[in-house]
Simulated assay, not measured.
Amino acid sequence: MKWTLAAALVPAGQLLDLARAAEENGYNSLALPDSVFYPEQVSAKYPYTKDGSRFWPAETEFIDPFVAIPAMAAVTTQLEFHTNVYKLPLRDPLLTAKQVASIAVMSDNRFAFGVGLSWIPEEFRFTHTEMRTRGARTDEAIEIIKAVCAGKGPEWVEYHGRHYDFDRLMISPAPTRPVRIFVGGHSEPALARTARIGDGWISVNTSPNKIIAACERLAALRAEYGRDDEPFEIIAGPVGDVSRDDYRRLEEAGVTECQAAPWWQYGVPLDDRAGMIDAARRFADEVIATY
Rank of each mutant, 00 (worst) to 15 (best):
G52S: 09
A101L: 10
L117A: 06
D34W: 10
Q41H: 14
E24N: 08
T4C: 15
L15N: 01
P121G: 01
Y38H: 14
A73G: 06
F55S: 11
A12I: 05
L15H: 11
A58G: 07
E24W: 04
P57S: 15
R137W: 06
K87M: 14
F62C: 02
P11V: 04
F37N: 01
M72E: 09
M131A: 07
D51E: 12
R54P: 11
V105M: 01
Q41Y: 11
V100T: 08
F124R: 05
G114V: 04
L79H: 03
E24A: 14
K87I: 14
T138I: 00
V115H: 01
D92N: 15
V42S: 01
V67W: 10
T133R: 07
N84S: 13
A44K: 10
E122V: 02
N84I: 14
R125H: 11
F62N: 01
D51A: 01
E59F: 12
A44R: 12
L88F: 02
R20N: 02
D51L: 10
P65F: 03
S35N: 12
L117V: 08
K45H: 12
L95Y: 12
L30G: 00
F126R: 14
N109Q: 12
V100G: 00
T60Q: 14
K2F: 09
L18K: 04
N25T: 03
G135F: 09
K45S: 09
H128T: 03
A6P: 00
N84A: 14
A58E: 14
L9A: 06
V105R: 06
L88Y: 05
A74W: 06
R125D: 13
V36A: 13
A6S: 14
A112D: 06
L5N: 07
V100Q: 05
R134T: 08
M1A: 09
F37L: 10
L95N: 12
K50Q: 13
F81C: 06
I69H: 08
G52Q: 06
T138Q: 10
N109Y: 10
A31Y: 05
L16Y: 06
R125F: 01
S53L: 12
G135D: 00
Y38E: 12
D139N: 12
E59A: 13
R125G: 00
T76V: 05
T83M: 05
A74C: 07
Q14A: 11
I63D: 07
S102F: 10
S29L: 00
S107N: 09
I103D: 02
A58Y: 12
E24P: 01
F111C: 01
A44T: 13
A136Y: 00
D17S: 12
N25P: 12
P65N: 11
E23Y: 03
Y38N: 12
L88P: 08
V75K: 11
P89R: 08
L16R: 08
M1V: 07
T138K: 03
Y86H: 11
E80C: 08
E80G: 07
D17C: 00
F62A: 09
A8I: 15
I69A: 10
